[in-house]
Every structure is written in structure tokens, then in C-alpha cells.
Simulated assay, not measured.
Amino acid sequence: MQIRAIALQHFRNIPATRLELSGRLQFFVGPNGQGKTNLLEAAGFVTALRSFRSADAKHLICHGQPEAALAFSMEHEQEGDTELTIKLRAGVKEAWLESTKVTRLADVIGRFPTVVFSSQDQQLVRGSPGGRRRWLDLTLSATDKAYFVALQAYHRALAERNALLKRGGGAAQLAAFEQVMADHGVGLIRARRAALAELAELLTSAYAHIADHAEPAGFAYAPDGDHEDAASLAARFAAMRNRDLAMRSTSSGPHRDDFDFMLHARQAKTFASEGQQRALVLSLRLAQATWFHRRSGVQPTLLADDVLGELDPARRQRFWAALPRDAQVLATGTTAPDAELGDWQVFAVDHGEFVPVEAKAG
């Protein structure tokens, strides 16, 4: 997949712009705070109609404006030329594919895959379990509609059970939602375990390339209870009722799963250096891109937001060499890319304006 044009209006600090993108490599250069990341944030919307930086749409709309608009023209391996339009208002998000309004997120999520390489990614290694779980759920949802549907059903039942716990609901009421959670939750556990096993192989390969075989890398899945069937998971929910009623929240289940990044069979968040952690999350995103391509047959567009500052020159060069040769790359930085990295279409970014400049040729 390649994005051929991006039009934005009142999106963050970008009042109005339309960019025609030619070739496979685009680079947005300028000082920090000018709008480079905002452009990549907008491009990432095509995958799941959400920002990789903010959960609240009101932060994405230019100050003093009632709404923001995003429009994309894309070339797609399976669907040909495609138009996607998105409008954002406070508390409201609307989208159209061609001229048809999107009524279900499941009709869009993962259809136009992008993979974001961000400086925030290091929190996936050393941050909270919720961030890792969110990444895993989005990755699986983008390639497996059944997983997405099960995830939605599980969390709806979880929300209902939590509401009952706050009201002091009875055992029969709680059991009804626990059964729904168990039926869908055991599928989530199985899918996560299988996916992490496959992604671990891809992570190992990518990390070996970037780090030049410096140390073996992988994952360790840490489910919140090792349940092989719905009956055992439902029994766990039932056993936790008294505690959960006291806590007024569901304290156990797939919504509390986690996984660790490993180097030399040790937890990377504890033992890895800053450079190793940076190489790990770059490798994770490369693994994610390969996963998307294998599962969907669509090559993701890669969005690289000034991510290479923590790497030494050799690892930085190996990262660029590891990117898929047929993938579109939209990248940002405070200085223009090195000439040997390829033929870039370059835009200078200044206070939300994007001006084409002479491309760097390799």
C-alpha cells in the first residue's frame, strides 16, 4: 500500500495543506515543534481511525476550529485506488470510504496498514503492561477480524461486570457476564500466545540484523492465569467474586495479561541498555510490518518519527537497510536524510506548512 496524497484541514497546527507524494520515500525535515509528527499522526489514521499519540479527538483539532478533516488517496494491492475521508469533532469521529460512510470500525481496521516507529515506543519495553497489551491487541485486531470481535465482546462484558461489582450485584447476575468473558477470553489468550510465538521469530531476525547478532532477543508471554478452556476461566472469575466485590473491580483475566521483551533470556526492561532497548522496539516494529504483510498480503506504509537518535551510526545504517524494499516510508528528522539512503521526496516543514525541496539522491 502507498499513500499518494494527503489533504489536511485544521489538524493540530496544520491549517490547510495538500501533499502529492511521488515515489516510495518521503522525508519531512525541520526543527522540532513545526508539525512533522502531526503529519505522520494524520497518516496513521488510515489503519484504525485513531491517533498513535492521543485518545481524545479534541486535542487534534486546531484551536478555535469546530472540526478537522483528513483525506487520503491510496494505491492498494487488493483494492486498487482508494479514497478515505475522516472528519473529527469533539466527541465525534466520522469516516467515508469512497462515498460510503463507515458505520463499523471492523470495516476499516487493518485494511490500510501502517506501522509507526516512534520515540515513545521505548515505553513498550519499560512501561506499563497496559501499553504492551494495547499494542498486541491492535496488532492482532488489524489482521484477525474474529480476534477484534472477541476483544470487543470481552470488554463489553467486563464493563458490565465492573458496573455490577460497584452496585453490589448478585452471584447470578455476575455469573452471566463471567460466562461471556470466559467464552471470549480463552480465545484471546490462545491467539495472543500463538501470535507472540510467531512474532518472537520475526523479532529475533530483525534484532539480529540491527544489532549485528549481538545477543538473542525474544518475548516471554505472561498471561494472567494459564487457562486452557472457558470452564477454567469462568471458575477463576467465580472464585474471585468476593475479592472483586470488595475491590469493586475485576482483578483477574485476559485484560491483565502482559509480556516481556527478553535479551539473553533476561528481562530487557531491567537489564538492557538504552541503545539495546531502542534497537528492540525498532525490531518490534519491523516484525509487526512483516506480520501485517504475511497475514494480509498488503505491504504496510512505514511512519518513522525521528527514531534513530539513540542508535550508533552502524546500527542506524543497519536499520535503514532492514526496511522492506517495496514499502513506502514517511520519515521525519531535524536534518535531511543521508544521500546513500535512497531517492527521497523532501518537504521542509515550518509552522504547519510543507514546502517541497530538492530530493536527496542516492
Results as ranks from 00 to 15, higher is better:
residue 223 P to W: 05
residue 229 D to L: 05
residue 187 G to W: 08
residue 179 Q to M: 09
residue 205 S to R: 15
residue 178 E to W: 00
residue 225 G to W: 03
residue 155 H to Y: 14
residue 163 A to R: 13
residue 180 V to A: 08
residue 184 H to W: 07
residue 175 A to N: 12
residue 187 G to V: 08
residue 175 A to T: 14
residue 224 D to L: 02
residue 233 L to A: 03
residue 196 L to F: 05
residue 194 A to E: 12
residue 223 P to R: 02
residue 175 A to M: 10
residue 157 A to I: 05
residue 181 M to G: 08
residue 174 L to F: 00
residue 217 A to F: 02
residue 165 L to P: 04
residue 183 D to F: 12
residue 211 A to R: 02
residue 187 G to Q: 12
residue 229 D to Q: 07
residue 238 A to I: 04
residue 239 A to V: 03
residue 232 S to D: 12
residue 170 G to L: 09
residue 154 Y to Q: 00
residue 208 A to T: 11
residue 160 E to H: 15
residue 173 Q to I: 08
residue 218 G to Y: 01
residue 157 A to M: 00
residue 182 A to N: 03
residue 212 D to Q: 13
residue 212 D to E: 15
residue 182 A to C: 11
residue 200 A to N: 05
residue 205 S to W: 06
residue 190 R to W: 11
residue 179 Q to E: 15
residue 169 G to I: 01
residue 174 L to Q: 06
residue 226 D to G: 06
residue 188 L to N: 02
residue 169 G to L: 07
residue 208 A to W: 10
residue 165 L to V: 03
residue 177 F to S: 01
residue 237 F to I: 00
residue 202 L to T: 04
residue 176 A to I: 15
residue 214 A to K: 06
residue 198 E to K: 12
residue 183 D to A: 15
residue 168 G to M: 02
residue 181 M to H: 09
residue 209 H to K: 14
residue 199 L to R: 02
residue 173 Q to V: 06
residue 228 E to K: 10
residue 156 R to N: 11
residue 205 S to I: 05
residue 153 A to P: 03
residue 199 L to E: 01
residue 199 L to V: 06
residue 237 F to K: 00
residue 177 F to H: 08
residue 217 A to V: 01
residue 180 V to K: 02
residue 187 G to R: 10
residue 221 Y to M: 08
residue 223 P to T: 01
